[in-house]
Amino acid sequence: MHIPDGYLSPQTYLPLFGAFVAVAAVAVKKVKEKFDRKMVPFLGMAASFSFLIMMFNIPIPGGTTGHAVGAAIIALLLGPWVAFIAVSVALIIQALVFGDGGITAIGANCINMAFFMPFTAWYAFKWIRGRSVSPARIGVAVFLAAYLSLNVAALVTGIEFGIQPILASGPEGHPLYAPYPLDIAVPAMAIQHLLFFGFIEAIVTLLIFRYFEKNFPDVTEVLK
């Protein structure tokens, strides 16, 4: 899901960069309000975890690979704004140091994976859980929230790919950037994540959630 350089037209990546800077400004303000010394290691752990989990490339039928992002569990444990910062840090290091995701696409990739994912997970969990305290219901809410969050990120990424032929085409109508139109890009991104990677994100999220519930019961932000 890391969009490389050359796939997005400037009319796409520039506004998304702007959106990223705007969200980042709000995130820093929000997080600073409650920030204390105790949170420093958690922020580092969260960003490190996201960075590492994205290195676990999983092959799927069809000859492609993908991975979990870890944004859902970070959002549920530390809140969506901290998750936005943590996952953004991981994505920026990936782009600058390892060429995973383009530098022109940093804004887009952070909006897709560090913004849409944590906020989807956060609100989906709250909505599915309702007011229930039943561990089963909470487990289902965690699982579905994580599953949905990766799929929303994949859908948004698919749309960004798919609108490129509309936004930037050469004189004979051929695409200048990502070549596949919406009716190819969106199903391709959606199906892989609906069938495979969404479940990986969900399982990873649920396992870690249960671990924290048991060992650090006062940490989990979404239960507060």
Partner: peptide
């Protein structure tokens, strides 16, 4: 794609 060709190697990661 021309734009992709222009931007693909914009940056060389270490």
């Amino acid at each position: 794609p021309e734009g992709m060709k222009k931007d693909a190697d914009l940056y060389n990661a270490p």
